[in-house]
Design a protein around this nucleic acid. Sequence first.
DNA 1: GCTTGCTAGGCACTTTGGTC
DNA 2: GACCAAAGTGCCTAGCAAGC
Length: 514
Amino acid sequence: MKEELEHRYQESQSLREHEEAKTKEEIQRRSEAILQLERLPADYQERVAIFPNPNQERVAIFPNPNQERVAIFPNPNQERERVAIFPNPNQERVAIFPNPNQERVAIFPNPNQERVAIFPNPNPNQERVAIFRNPNQERVAIFPNPNQERAAIFPNPNQEKAAIFPNPNHERVAIFPNPNRKEERAAIFPNPNQERVAIFPNPNQERERVAIFPNPNQERVAIFPNPNQERAAIFSTYCRDKITAPSHITNMDEIPPTFNIPLTHKVEKKGPAWWRYAQWGTRSHRSPWFSAATETDRALDDRRRTLLHKDYLATAGKLCHHMRADCRRMGYDTVFMYCKSFHKINAEAEPVDQNQKMQKMQLSLNVNIFPTKLWRLVNDGDIDTIVWNQQGDGIIIKKGLMEKGFLSLNGFKDSRFSSFGRQLKLYGFKRSRPFNGDKPNILQYFHPHFQRRRPELLPLLRRCDKKCGVGMKNYSKDHLTERWRDLRNLYDTDDSIDVNLNNGESLNVHSKEI
DNA sequence: GCTTGCTAGGCACTTTGGTC
DNA sequence: GACCAAAGTGCCTAGCAAGC
């Protein structure tokens, strides 16, 4: 009995040593391949991967400078052919893999040589090997048992690509060795019915990119516009065209992690709270940092990469040439809102008196709260969805347009008008009362502290509790009904404004100054 | 009197910002 | 980082008015 146990122990030991040796050999082989790739040029182009329903075909498009590669892998459990097209400048390559239980054919016509690989062995338990000799380098594709791990190795002149596809019913791992770093890129596709995670360590950044595709039944698209210049251009273009928060940008990969913003206005001195955001590389996980420097301070900044409090104070009141923002630890909207608290990016200067009023108001107001966002919307000359009424003591809202993504594009988290109206009510706005039968698509709201020519009242606009009602006695039921009559009469007589109060679809406000 | 549609408001939960 | 307060958001219900 004892001898038998010892014999089994010896067997298990030898088996384990054998497996360890194989694993070590495999690791060594991959390490050598990765090290070899570190000398190869990088692929900086945009990569788009679309993975529709895992039960249907999958398409991956990787446009790069050298070639566009399209691979379609139908359901491995179905008897559909698999086609991989790799059109590149030098050659078109087509690989057709019909039923895995039948013959597999890969055709790589190139200028130099046509290559055909035939996998006649119908036995799925045997290894199938295809060798594609080309003028530059041998390529080997190994497809072991289709029910087990499948490995494809494409050592080519530009880059080796290793893809490991374990059991299709289990986790799938694809490894893309990064030629610029020692880190490999790993994409893990667990069970198709579960979440899929792809990690792409960016060689140009200190930040890896993670794409999560939760719902397996929907189409999954991951766009990684890699070049920082491209992201900077996106942001710069938006800053030039818009002065409201770009909420439509939901993917942080659309903007660079750090960037400089050209400024045309003076830096305003901020309080202690703002100074926190002027620190370079604060440890707080939610604190952004900015550096704003004058021409002289800029050189100082470049030397020691640390912006001290005195440097920040030195910029106050001077012309700022650039602002640097770090988006890695915060949302894009937050970045933009803080930027706006410093300046109106590339916006035209306002009249002195109005500007001073606005500056005082901005210093006393949180730029992210509802009244501030609403004020900005109403005063935006490019927006006619929300405008002042004729008297300037109320706002007119075109409800129909607001329901079409308007709110989410202008700094509000939720695009539903119901939530927007909820906010108006929370802050004590009163709505004019339409006549019986009127189902207006335009709405008129009033608040004593929200008036066109009195921005200084805005800080008084607070969320209401049960005791709220400052000045609301001016907005009685009859008064609000009368104001609705005024609005309707105005629209009915003004030829420049086409208003259909019943459905609102033809509302066309030409003038902001209604 | 009942149904329907709308509005106002309560409440819970999450997010954000400030303080220590 | 923990804690707290304010703000934002979604869901729900009560109340009201109009229509049938």
